[in-house]
């Protein structure tokens, strides 16, 4: 089971800043465990952020994105109370979706 994405969204002068921390190991497939075995690659490949039925950011990740991927970006058109939804999918096909309200 994956853990919920931490998100904070605040609007100032019509521009909403969204700060995101997804919770994911982001194994790059080159790390070895204590026994010396390679830990298989396991990482988020696709991210989609939506507001009011509109995509406000799409991202594709490789294995060079740090553990617990962190993102900050800005968009126009958000109002206090609006819902923002972030969904991700990883290379094992697992996915999850979380919401935050703009404050």
């Amino acid at each position: 089971m994956s853990n919920p994405t931490k998100m904070r969204a605040a609007v100032v002068d019509g521009i909403t800043e969204l700060k995101v921390m997804m919770q994911h190991e982001m194994e790059n497939g080159r790390r070895k465990d204590e026994a010396g075995n390679l830990v298989p690659a396991w990482y988020i490949t696709d991210v989609k952020v939506q507001h009011a039925n509109r995509t406000i950011l799409e991202a594709q990740f490789g294995t060079s994105v740090s553990k617990n991927p962190y993102l900050v970006f800005h968009f126009r058109g958000g109002k206090v109370g609006d819902k923002i939804t972030l969904s991700w999918t990883d290379n094992r096909g697992e996915s999850r979706s979380d919401d935050v309200a703009i404050s």
């Binding site: 995509t55 490789g62 060079s64 970006f73 126009r76």
Partner: peptide, 21 residues
């Protein structure tokens, strides 16, 4: 390639993230 972001209209050309080197 570490990350690729598609930025629709209405979203600013600004991204902060953290990568491995």
């Amino acid at each position: 390639l570490a990350a690729n972001f598609l930025v629709p209209e209405g979203t600013e050309g600004f991204i902060t993230t953290r990568i491995r080197m």
